[in-house]
Design a protein around this nucleic acid. Structure first.
Lengths: 106, 106
DNA sequence: TTGACATGCAACCAAATGGTTGCATATTAA
DNA sequence: TTAATATGCAACCATTTGGTTGCATGTCAA
């Protein structure tokens, strides 16, 4: 559940779409998820493996089907540990930048 | 300032390190930033270009130097528009998953 | 039991990525 | 003016990535 794996997993639009799909309807099987994607089942499998490695998706084998569940915890950890840091400095940074750009003479 | 560009930019650990560095000391020149990175100046330049394209970094040419400023706005937009969506369902999703895993019989 | 269905595994491929080296250009300082 | 410094640009390279096809395995249903 390294933070790097989460960032990498989120970098791909197809994978974010998969998370969106699971957010809309949790517990979908591989085949169900493939229905919405315009690529082969094997490609989707690979994307899901990346999401699983990042701990963003948990799977549950039920008979011959595999259900996929969204795990929002890593996303929240990123939000709290990483994004929060930049958020704090937001207004300051903006006003500093503005000032800097205004006294624009070398 | 597409969301995709921001996600892609954040995916690389070197680029996150650059953002961290700018967060610690804003307005650093290319050379200053290179000092902390274990790669050639040209490689750092490329990473900064990706960050600039995602609008995460703004540059300011001052004489023969180029200053780099962190722009936290896109990070906040991601936090608000995208992460917030998953955050809302967090507790529900967790408890649902738990229930599901518990009644673990096909 | 047997066929259909859901998934797993592996080899392969093109394109993108992250890095390098080499050289060009522009600005500052001696 | 000239030399050093800061950055820009481009070609090149290895590896990773995102996708494919082909085949194997496991499970359900008739």
């Amino acid at each position: 559940m390294s933070m790097d794996a989460v960032f990498r997993a989120l970098a791909d639009p197809t994978r974010r779409q998969l998370l969106d799909s699971l957010h809309a309807r949790n517990g979908q099987t591989l085949n169900a998820l493939c229905g919405e994607m315009d690529m082969t089942r094997q490609a989707v499998t690979k994307h899901l493996a990346v999401l699983e490695e990042a701990n963003l998706v948990t799977t549950l084998r039920r008979g011959r089907e595999k259900e996929h569940y969204l795990n929002p915890v890593p996303i929240n950890e990123i939000a709290e540990r990483w994004i929060g840091k930049f958020e704090r400095g937001r207004l300051d940074a903006l006003s500093n930048l503005k000032k800097r750009l205004e006294r624009e003479e070398p």
